[in-house]
Design a protein around this nucleic acid. Structure first.
Length: 284
DNA sequence: CTAGGATCCTGTCAGC
DNA sequence: TGCTGACAGGATCCTA
């Protein structure tokens, strides 16, 4: 679920942890934590970064922690009664506002002034600690394609050509082709470019590939601006959720409704094993 | 090597 | 109300 914009919103929210230290880690689901939690205790957080859909937190002792939320992961920061502003992002459920820890809680990080909860319904997500120097060797990061904002249109075109027989939807979901695109922004970007998700990737023209890349950059920037599709910041019980989906999405989740561009009906079909939203009128 | 499908896991929802 | 099957904002592994 959380795609590049949602993870980016979380990254920004976690800047508040810079120069603070984790005092204690409680691993409630063994599978969710790879490596030794002890190595990141009592050392300052020097950077909170992101690559694709992965959060990367660096520590002063040259250790790093990668957090990948996969489908249903959540990051929830609570200052409790300290009076600070709470914050949450990831898969949108009521756990954002629930009493924590709860049965979805996989890891708890205790700081001086608050607690950071890693919640995950389906247990696909994980936290992994390693030496900062070893990040580049992590096989997920090592094979990850460039960020959409860093990729040249020609390179994107060439990557689509290389896997020309697969449909374009499957290609853009492949993190080795372009980083950070997931099911929502795949559908939104394809709509933006007027490209049908079942087109074989090799049939896209240079102009279409360029437009598609621009689509990803545009819709993702818009989503980040709106707080992502899933994020919530809140003070006490007053919730404010990211409203990208309701405010801006053209096709995702709008099956049965009218296309705002041509007036045709948005359809939901199955492509590359994923629910896919498309306007046949606008996407060829 | 590629492309497509199964798979990890649990909760929710639609349809009997 | 209770059951069943489909599905889920991800990515890897297995098979042909």
């Amino acid at each position: 679920m959380p795609e590049l914009p949602e993870v980016e919103v979380i990254r920004r929210g976690l800047q508040r942890l810079l120069n603070t230290k984790i005092m204690r880690v409680e691993v409630k689901e063994k599978k969710a934590f790879i490596g030794d939690p002890q190595v990141i205790l009592n050392t300052k957080i020097t950077q909170v970064g992101r690559r694709g859909k992965a959060l990367i937190i660096d520590f002063e002792n040259e250790m790093s922690m990668m957090i990948h939320l996969r489908m249903t992961g959540q990051v929830i920061w609570r200052e409790g009664n300290a009076g600070g502003e709470d914050f949450a992002g990831g898969h949108p459920t009521d756990d954002f506002f629930a009493e924590l820890p709860n049965r979805m809680t996989r890891v708890v990080f205790e700081f001086d002034k608050g607690k950071l909860f890693f919640n995950d319904q389906r247990k696909f997500g994980f936290v992994k600690v390693m030496k900062t120097a070893e990040l580049a060797e992590d096989w997920f990061l090592a094979s990850l394609a460039p960020e959409p904002t860093e990729m040249k249109a020609e390179e994107f075109y060439q990557r689509l050509q290389r896997h020309g027989k697969a449909n374009v939807k499957a290609m853009v979901l492949n993190q080795k082709v372009i980083a950070g695109v997931g099911n929502i922004y795949a559908d939104e970007g394809l709509f933006f470019a007027g490209v049908h998700p079942e087109r074989r990737a090799g049939t896209l023209t240079r102009a279409e590939a360029k437009q598609l890349l621009e689509g990803f950059v545009t819709v993702m920037a818009k989503s980040i601006e709106l707080g992502g599709s899933t994020m919530a910041t809140y003070v006490n019980a007053e919730g404010k959720k990211g409203d990208y989906l309701t405010a801006f999405a053209e096709v995702f989740g709008r099956q049965g409704q009218k296309c705002r561009r041509c007036g045709g009906e948005i359809k939901k079909i199955r492509v590359a094993g994923r629910g896919t939203h498309v306007c046949d009128g606008c996407q060829k």
